[in-house]
Amino acid sequence: MDVTERLIDDLRNLPAVVERADYRLQGYHLEVRLQSAQVRDFAKLLRERNFYLAFVSAVHVAAAIEILYQLACFTQPCRILAKAAVSDQGSVPSIADIFDGANWHERETHEMFGVVFSGHPYLEPLLLPEESADLRPLLKAEDAILPADRIRRQAAGQTEDSTLPAKSEGGTSGSDPEKIE
């Protein structure tokens, strides 16, 4: 796994925060946290390392919308999930010239969340009709927006509810054993 090790080192040099994730529980191998200014360097690095872009999307949390990038690789099992908070100006640099596939994903994220991808060649609605181009349907209602730490995975044993004593597999199960049957 020295390829992955090298990748982690290079990502940390961006500099980005990189953490190994438990694939069995989370479905991806690496979690990367970026500043919006690092997004393009991040994309360039992974383009060089022959990754492909699975999707770009966003999640509406307080204080700033988080942009999600998921990438994977054809030659080795390494799925990366990167998160970047949009800047104070509500924008994040476009990577459509690095990964051509990002063009549509960014257009979709723009119409659904209102995030501006600066440098995008054609930031027009993709799926929504012209008359509802300003709807931003995936933004949460004001009273439903959660702070970012309310959706973060909690380390094992840190969960509040009466969890199962760490099973051999998947110790983060939140189900109550009493309720079974």
């Binding site: 989370q26 991806y28 699975a54 799925r79 995975r153 969960t159 199960s173 939140g174 109550d176 079974i180």
Partner: peptide
């Protein structure tokens, strides 16, 4: 499986 099954806080992906 339990009738009510909340999803634990956090994120996950499945391909």
């Amino acid at each position: 499986t339990p009738k009510k099954l909340p999803l634990p806080q956090g994120d996950a992906s499945f391909s």
